[in-house]
Design a protein around this nucleic acid. Structure first.
Lengths: 278, 278
DNA sequence: TTGCTCCTCACGTCACGTGAGGTGGC
DNA sequence: TTGCTCCTCACGTCACGTGAGGTGGC
């Protein structure tokens, strides 16, 4: 019989750990003194301790190990748990590799720019939404603001006529697959309740559609509206650096409010959402 | 100004998280009502929240992020932290891959044997130890027990003559590089205090040497002494399955006590330690 | 008697999730 | 007045590490 200290040395675990395993029922001492409560272990308990450590080494939690060590686990269940573990570990490897790639991209970025860059890109999930919109081709960049504002004005007017409450915030969607300064295919949109959208009898020229759910690369821009292109560039650059590709037209969310009502175009907050191909 | 609930929706984080970030000083609300303690955020705080989330996504702890967001971090320090993170992540990838390999080895083992195998192999570090030993060539397996016992008896006798206290446990070391049933090169050894070893004036034929520290694959065998070969096989099989190779002769640790004194060779506990090449 | 080992609480870790119990604003 | 949102505690998570305070065995 070994006292807990000796057994812990043989098994290369701490005394505290043995006490925990006792408490959890993972490894009960062969004998406990009734008067002193001292724990005594026998040498032939060492294989069980090693089994526990081996399973822990595979990444199982103590609770899972407790289940695996119950006498009556059928081999299929054992296989099942290991297969689960395998899948989890594959996921872990993948996650760590992706994260590593992002860290390396950051490092390269810092080399270039000498510090944390202006924009941070984060990936988030956006849900599907019903939007009502008007779509316009904008001949040149110079006309963008006026055409977009007119589109939004027209959109809100028609919604009012149909007694449909526009949701918030409004957004613009840019459909050109590549960068262009001419004939920009732009959609001015606003989120509405699906029921409200359905209540519009003859919608034309309004477009009513479901904006699909997506994983998006999201960048928040705060400052001059005209500088939003920097944020868009940042989103595309991030995507390229992390080996993704676009999964749809990017969305420009007017977090600051309605473009037509806003007083100061040099202090807007908006979010660029670039859907990622998955 | 946004109430915490609205800001949490925009930022895709929970209200609880925002309160935590406030408490930690990571992201203070733009304004806190003096009477109600309500937190109010402004839209232009969204970029900071996103920066926090982006850094978290790289795997930094909140405390590290707090340090990174202090105005005055020089870019080198930033690079330093990212490089650290990079190294940690490389380690994580490696660990997860190794663990995955072990899980897969287990799965294959279960396919073959239909359940958890008899032996569990764990890797542990053993420290360098000073041993005193006698080395013998054993012509055939049949003579192993008698020659080994004689060697241990002779070893203990000589230690006693030199008034050196033998440590515990005793161990046998097998030097043949390959499996063999003839001319087995065996060393019967016992751990001693370095000082005590040094005090032996003319040691011959005793060998006094330092058993090197090592990473070992460790298997505990409990049962008949003659079945210990199963444990040895298990250790080698594990090593092969996990892509390692032997880094020295294996050691057979007599946890049960002295082989010469033990009464029941059908109930021994011993540990096989197979050093791994690193 | 003095160290050494053992015992049982109980707090701390990390980034929140999840109530409990109470209050403010429409 | 009724929901809804906000507030501040405070416990739980996971596998221990690390004292605190006290006792048993040589």
């Amino acid at each position: 019989m070994l006292k807990i200290g000796d057994f812990s040395q043989l098994g290369q675990v701490s005394v505290r750990t043995l006490r925990l395993y006792d408490e959890m029922g993972l490894l009960k001492p062969a004998h406990v003194d009734r008067f002193t409560d001292y724990r005594y272990y026998s040498l032939d308990q060492l294989p069980r301790l090693n089994r526990i450590l081996a399973l822990k080494d595979l990444g199982f939690s103590l609770e899972q190990i407790a289940r695996l060590l119950k006498e009556d686990v059928p081999p299929e269940r054992l296989r099942g748990m290991l297969t689960m573990r395998q899948a989890e570990l594959e996921q872990q490897v993948e996650d760590a590799q992706a994260r590593l790639a992002r860290v390396e991209a950051r490092l390269r970025q810092i080399e270039r720019e000498g510090g944390l860059p202006r924009y941070d890109v984060i990936v988030k999930e956006v849900e599907a939404q019903t939007v009502v919109s008007l779509r316009r081709i904008v001949p040149t960049m110079n006309e963008m603001v006026s055409i977009r504002c007119a589109a939004f004005a027209s959109l809100y007017r028609r919604l009012e006529q149909n007694r449909v409450e526009p949701g918030t915030p409004e957004l613009a969607i840019y459909h050109n697959a590549e960068y262009t300064e001419e004939n920009i295919d732009m959609e001015a949109a606003v989120v509405v309740e699906p029921d409200a959208a359905a209540s519009i009898a003859s919608p034309a020229p309004l477009i009513i559609r479901e904006l699909p759910a997506a994983s998006v690369a999201s960048v928040v821009h705060h400052g001059r509206f005209m500088d939003v292109c920097d944020a868009i560039v940042a989103a595309y650059a991030w995507m390229a650096a992390n080996g993704g590709s676009a999964g749809g037209p990017y969305r420009e969310i007017h977090l600051f409010g309605r473009e037509n009502d806003w007083h100061d175009m040099n202090a807007v907050t908006l979010e660029v959402q670039l859907p990622l191909a998955s």
